[in-house]
């Protein structure tokens, strides 16, 4: 196992060569904001919030998929990056209809936390106000497309951990929507096992448990990580 040494924000650290910048940073208590990244599922580098600067490379690199390198000088918190992150969060808020006050996830929403951490108090951009549906045909869960940020965590968790592949995306660009099966209401999606992993995976109030109060809606991400780790290490075999 080869080890690489690098600096992140001036702090000298060592990391295993197969680790990503994000993993190395987290191990060393350096926070890089993320949204589409979810422990236990594959990394897709889509939300662009974890972009970092690496000395000598003109492009910004996504920390979640960039491997550590010997002598790398990573900067996760420059003026430029901070500004871009804030803009990305603002774009997300303007893209759909995120009304925190009327959201079941209020108080433990990853998007909300991101907004606070980047210091966003309003969006500089015009709200797009798209027409989005709320689907509560499933007996236990519901999906509110107004809150969806298209991070794809539900799609990956359903495919990679549960193996059902109920979720996928339809359309493209701003018209992308999360769909279940052949674009049928969730309650009629025959492939859904009602396992609830997507509920745990969803960073916002888009996928929620029905009949829960705001206080009860707190999601437990570690459960997903636990399933994957247990599976990989065969922890259920005595």
């Amino acid at each position: 196992m080869a080890v690489k040494t690098l600096t992140i924000d001036g702090k000298a650290i060592s990391a295993r060569e197969e680790q990503t910048i994000l993993q190395a940073a987290r191990e060393n208590g350096i926070t890089i904001p993320t949204l589409c990244q979810l422990n236990g599922t594959s990394d897709i580098g889509a939300c662009r919030l974890c972009l970092v600067e690496v000395a000598g490379i003109p492009k910004l690199l996504p920390a979640c998929v960039t491997r550590v390198g010997e002598g790398m000088e990573v900067s996760t918190d420059s003026e430029r990056i901070r500004e871009y992150r804030k803009m990305i969060v603002e774009l997300l808020f303007a893209e759909r209809n995120h009304v925190c006050a009327a959201c079941v996830e209020n108080g433990h929403c990853e998007l909300q936390d991101l907004a606070i951490s980047v210091g966003m108090d309003h969006s500089r951009y015009d709200y797009m106000n798209p027409k989005c549906a709320v689907d509560i045909t499933h007996p236990r869960y519901g999906i509110d497309h107004n809150r969806c940020v298209l991070c794809g965590r539900c799609v990956r968790v359903c495919d990679e951990i549960e193996g059902a592949h109920t979720w996928d995306f339809q359309g493209r660009g701003a018209n992308t929507r999360t769909i279940s099966d052949m674009f049928v209401p969730w309650g009629q999606a025959a492939s859904c096992t009602s396992c609830g992993k997507c509920v745990q995976a969803c960073p916002t109030g888009a996928i929620f448990r029905r009949g829960s109060t705001v206080a009860e809606m707190k999601k437990d991400r570690t459960r997903l990580d636990f399933i994957v780790t247990a599976r990989e290490k065969k922890q259920w075999i005595a």
């Binding site: 303007a94 995306f169 359309g171 493209r172 660009g173 701003a174």
Partner: peptide, 18 residues
Amino acid sequence: CMDESCGKCVPCRAGTAQ
């Protein structure tokens, strides 16, 4: 570009629309 954006990453999907 807005119509042809695949919708995967936020800057291209939401940014081109803005």
